[in-house]
Write a protein that binds this DNA or RNA. Structure first.
Length: 845
RNA sequence: GCCCGGGUGGCGGAACGGCAGACGCGGUGGACUCAAAAUCCAUUGUCCUUGCGGGCGUGCGGGUUCGAGUCCCGCCCCGGGCACCA
């Protein structure tokens, strides 16, 4: 998964602190010694290994598996800090937590490195996996490592291919022509990322062109409605659901045919969501790739049309939909006319780049009066504009897309837009010209990649049998190692004779092996299922084990995956359920989703391919992992982006100081409580303790980690209050407070919490149950009643929280400070919201 | 261009439509110390005021409301995604 924006460089951190090799009570806290001790212990005791037979209620907590880009960067640290907090918190709450880890280990960077340095992608990738794994362990994040999955592992490839074959058999995979970015200089297909903003190749600088290639697709559009409907039941951020909804882009409308003047043999089919505007159609537009374009183009217009096609060949879809620059040069007349079926008038047919072949029918009826882009284009080309919805008075100079009364529209005159939509549809259907049609913005999933470092598509192309899947017992199809990684030429697989040339599994004749590999989103669409049964060599995963763990209860990853990965995976699991391979529990794979913000530096202008130079290891080696974790929890709400600045190191150092502050409290070095009860202080501290337990618990439940950490700061401050003075709280109250502090800290800063607890009690803090507040002690004895005059705060009165309406008003009325702002007349109105607020509304004087 | 977010002190941030700035970082002052570090304590939006207190303040402009950082409308700026980066 995503390699996030990462900081480029930071000023040097103050040198490593002195360590004294141990951290028993009475000594300074030594993060390195403590962290290594506990990391070894968690690993050797298998503390976070779970099995399906575990009787506790299950919780599946998962961070999106990473693309192994080497040592972890701060984006990973942030992700795994949140994940680990959830794992430990749910464990303390009594759940059997499934916490697996794996690697999205196929991908472009390894192949680029191979081309550059000659190192084989596998060697390159394995080395980086080890590095990343090490930093994840050093962070103190705990996983059931027996379940590790790597995309490039032959067993994972095998079952991925096996699933692809099942999809092929079910008719869900098919081949079709689709454009790719072709670099004439490199003689190779480029990823969008490798094409610069000016449309040139990042490596050779050549102008990139779009070229049609026969490629594999998955029929995700068949699931469009289901994917849309399924969003309702998900506990996902609204913005992610909205993005998916918009991405699917369901729209209801009409598809109808336009007669072509002087061409009885062909007709132009268009889709519209606004059939009510039919009388306003003054021209039509086809996409440059439209199959009828050639037939529609007359001899005298062919030159201009060809020029346009050449120009469009190196534009991306984004550039084509942009209205920057003049539309003038981006469309031209074909020379043909079609008949507007509503009024029988001939209207000209244009070709323009802003119409995309991939959406609808690749042709539109243009209504400049009611569509702004059509308006702009019509203005440039001097085309007619006929309003069919009456715009408000004074409306001129632009399209009117709102609702109103229909005009100039024959049988629809006088109707509302909504009525007219229905009338136009019924009219088109009754005439046999059109049909109602649901259209989606979503396109089928193109899974072919012309690359080496990916999962080979397991089919063989036979001249006599056609496309034949590789039989199950011959899986996995593995890419050969002896390939050349050249900076020019096609995919290494296509040039590898003994891989490419094979025999047909059906007839035994000479055949050609498919040399495309699968999109890495294919791999990331089912790894969370494999985690449930990672070593199975009879099937991708056992349905019973999958049923035990699925769905993922908490999925955590970057917002950049809001649409693609998260939509593909939802599609994939639906298919697996429909094919009977996965239990219904997996239909919606991620019950709860959290999308974290990104790490930015200098406004995020840096490129993602640059390495991460703010390596977490520099913090592990100085202040320790706990300090870095607390920093990430505290610095911002988890969903927000984080700016890595000059001040960041100082803030992290502050967390290191705080850890020592807690350590001194826990070990008694900060001073101890009194031997006798101190009623006032004890009540204050116990109230604070139990209120903090409530606050932290609810903050963790609502993903408000920054405020949870703040609450722990406050509890520590409360513990220090009056410590070492005659007015100190009793040892009993202090111990209760410090124990609560350590327990609440355990999911956040697990090492110091574990060590502190062991020093105090001898056992493991992470095996303790999560603390429960005493509601009586947590209750506030008084609250502040705010007295306002005309909405401005004029006084504050401490009152009993159960105070009533009348009593509150009476108390407020008695406030001298408030009365000083009220003049002599009685208030016009009094708003009383006990126990928080009384607002007197008076006439200004 | 389209879709989705964000904008609060010097900085990161807090705030069920009801005390704007919790908790930190940085700053300032103090205690401890021969001194320093570490530590502990206090203070810190801004303007006017000796003080009490008051005015102004949540990107900009309007609106709803007894009351708006929060809700609505219109802008500006910054970021994410846009189907082959993952």
């Amino acid at each position: 998964m995503g390699d996030q924006h990462v900081p480029e460089s930071v000023p040097p951190l103050s040198g490593p602190r002195e360590t004294d090799g141990a951290s028993e009570a009475g000594l300074a806290y030594d993060p390195q010694a403590v962290e290594q001790k506990w990391q070894r212990l968690w690993a050797s005791e298998g503390t976070y290994q779970v099995d399906a037979s575990d009787p506790r209620p299950k919780a599946y907590v998962l961070c999106m598996y990473p693309y192994p880009s080497g040592a972890a960067h701060q984006g990973h640290v942030r992700n795994y800090t949140f994940g680990d907090l959830n794992v430990r918190y749910r464990t303390m709450q009594g759940c059997a937590v499934l916490s697996p880890f794996g690697f999205d280990s196929f991908g472009l960077p390894a192949e680029n490195a191979a081309i550059k340095t000659g190192i084989h992608p596998r060697e390159f990738t394995d080395a980086r996996i080890e590095e990343l794994k090490q930093s994840v362990v050093a962070l103190g994040a705990v996983y059931d490592w027996r379940r590790e999955v790597r995309s490039h592992d032959p067993s994972y490839i095998r079952w991925g291919q096996w699933i692809f074959v099942r999809m092929l058999e079910a008719g869900l995979a098919y081949q079709a022509e689709a454009p790719v970015n072709w670099c004439p200089g490199c003689q190779t297909v480029l990823a969008n990322e490798q094409v610069l903003a000016d449309g040139t190749c990042e490596r050779s600088g050549d102008q990139v062109v779009r070229r049609e290639l026969r490629q594999w697709f998955l029929r995700i559009t068949e699931y469009a409605d289901e994917l849309l409907e399924g969003l309702h039941q998900l506990q996902w951020p609204d913005r992610v659901k909205t993005m998916q909804r918009n991405w699917i882009g369901r729209s209801e409308g009409v598809q109808f045919a336009l007669e072509v003047v002087d061409h009885p043999d062909i007709e132009l089919t268009v889709f519209t969501t606004r059939p009510d505007t039919g009388f306003g159609v003054t021209y039509a537009v086809v996409a440059p790739e439209h199959p009828l374009l050639s037939a529609l183009t007359t001899t005298e217009h062919r030159r201009q049309v060809d020029e346009l096609l050449q120009q469009v060949a190196h534009l991306s879809d984004i550039e084509r939909q942009s209205t920057e620059g003049s539309l003038d040069k981006r469309g031209t007349f074909t020379g043909s006319y079609v008949l507007n079926p509503f009024n029988g008038q001939p209207v000209p047919v244009y070709v323009a780049d802003y119409v995309l072949m991939g959406y609808g029918t690749g042709a539109i009826m243009a209504v400049p009066a009611e569509d702004q882009r059509d308006w702009d284009f019509a203005a440039l080309k001097g085309l007619d504009v006929v309003r069919t919805t009456q715009p408000p008075e004074d409306w001129e100079g632009q399209a009117f897309t709102g609702t109103g009364v229909k005009v100039n529209s024959g049988f629809m005159d006088g109707m509302s837009v909504e009525q007219a939509k229905v009338a136009a549809l019924e009219w088109l259907e009754s005439k046999g010209i059109g049909v109602r049609k649901v259209n989606y913005r979503l396109r089928d999933w193109l899974v072919s990649r012309q690359r080496y470092w990916g999962c080979p598509i397991p089919v063989v192309h036979c001249p006599s049998c056609g496309t034949v899947p590789v039989p199950d017992d011959q899986l996995p199809v593995l890419a050969p190692d002896d390939v050349e990684f050249l900076p020019t030429g096609e995919s290494p697989l296509a040039r590898h004779d003994t891989f490419r040339d094979t025999t047909c599994p059906a007839c035994g004749g000479a055949a050609r092996r498919e040399t495309d590999t699968l999109d890495t989103f294919f791999d990331s669409s089912w790894y969370f299922l494999r985690f449930c049964d990672p070593q199975d060599d009879r099937r991708p995963f056992d349905p019973a084990l999958t049923q035990r763990w699925m769905p993922v209860d908490q999925y955590i990853g970057g917002i950049e995956h809001a649409v693609l990965h998260l939509l593909y995976a939802r599609f994939f699991t639906r298919v697996l359920v429909d094919l009977g391979l996965a239990p219904v529990e997996a239909r919606e794979p991620f019950a709860r989703l959290f999308t974290q913000g990104m790490i930015r530096m200098d406004g995020s202008k840096m490129s993602k391919s640059k390495g991460n130079l703010v390596a977490p290891s520099r913090y592990f080696d100085s202040v320790g992992a706990d300090a870095l974790r607390l920093f990430h929890l505290a610095v911002a709400p988890p969903a927000e982006d984080v700016d890595w600045t000059d001040q960041t190191d100082e803030v992290i150092a502050g967390w290191s100081r705080w850890i020592s502050r807690v350590w001194r409290l826990a070990t008694g070095q900060a001073g101890s409580g009194g031997t006798k009860p101190n009623e006032a202080e004890d009540r204050r501290l116990r109230h604070f303790t139990h209120r903090t337990i409530q606050k932290v618990t609810s903050d963790l439940d609502r993903w408000s980690y920054n405020t949870a950490v703040s609450a722990l700061r406050e509890l520590a401050n409360a513990c220090y209050h009056n410590l070492g003075t005659p007015d100190a709280p009793s040892a009993v109250a202090l111990d209760e407070a410090v124990d609560a502090l350590v327990l609440l800290l355990a999911p956040m800063a697990p090492h110091v919490a574990a060590e502190a607890w062991q020093v105090r009690h001898g056992d493991h803090v992470h095996a303790r149950p999560w603390p429960v507040a005493d509601a009586q002690l947590a209750r506030d004895e008084t609250v502040t009643l705010v007295v306002q005059v005309n909405g401005k705060v004029r006084d504050r009165i401490e009152v009993d929280p159960t105070i009533g309406q009348a009593e509150a008003e009476l108390l407020a009325m008695g406030s001298e400070r408030a009365r000083a702002h009220m003049g002599t007349e009685p208030p016009v109105k009094v708003v009383v919201k006990p126990p928080r607020l009384v607002n007197f509304v008076v006439r200004p004087h």
